[in-house]
């Protein structure tokens, strides 16, 4: 008799499986899980800790907080950050002070590990939420993070 019992049981399990998929088919409109990406660009908001690319925030006076200490360059595991720096004489104290010429960031090499952000003593760089990083030319992935003509914010010390 187990022959017929097996057939019956088998058909029952098949039908209960079909019930699950059938239920989703009928509620397909409500249960859609995919996002319609280019259309939902306006409403698509990444989480605040999302790691998309490294940026250097500047304030309204075009001032940043980077002292050129190179902590991020040392912390970076794959050489994505290069800092070109120089020294100039501070007019007030007369001492030579380090400043950044270019804070170069190679997005093409970055693995978004966040170690540079953690290493930065002055919170000069942070991770941005932008994730659409595709470009047609590879050179566009090498960025200079400090804006032209920007300078160190007053009071930021190493």
């Amino acid at each position: 008799m187990s022959y017929f019992g097996d057939i019956g049981k088998g058909i029952k399990t098949l039908l209960s499986g079909m019930k699950v998929t059938g239920k989703y088919f009928l509620n397909a409109r409500k249960e859609i899980i995919t996002q319609q990406y280019p259309e939902n660009r306006d409403t698509l908001e990444m989480f605040e800790r999302f790691r998309g690319e490294v940026v250097m925030p500047h304030d309204e006076n075009n001032e940043h907080r980077c002292t050129g200490c190179q902590a991020c360059e040392i912390a970076c595991p794959n050489g994505s950050i290069e800092i070109v720096w120089d020294r100039k004489v501070d007019e007030e104290t007369g001492k030579k002070k380090k400043y950044i010429v270019n804070h170069i960031y190679h997005l093409s090499m970055c693995t978004m590990c966040n170690l540079c952000i953690v290493a930065c003593p002055t919170d000069a760089i942070k991770m941005a939420k932008k994730f659409e990083n595709a470009v047609f030319d590879r050179t566009a992935l090498t960025k200079v993070l400090n804006k032209p003509g920007s300078k160190l914010m007053d009071g930021v010390e190493e």
Binding site: M46, F47, R49, F50, R51, M112, N114, M127
Partner: peptide
């Protein structure tokens, strides 16, 4: 993603 900042790595 909310806590760690990434989904896979």
């Amino acid at each position: 993603e909310e806590t760690c900042g990434a989904r896979l790595t």
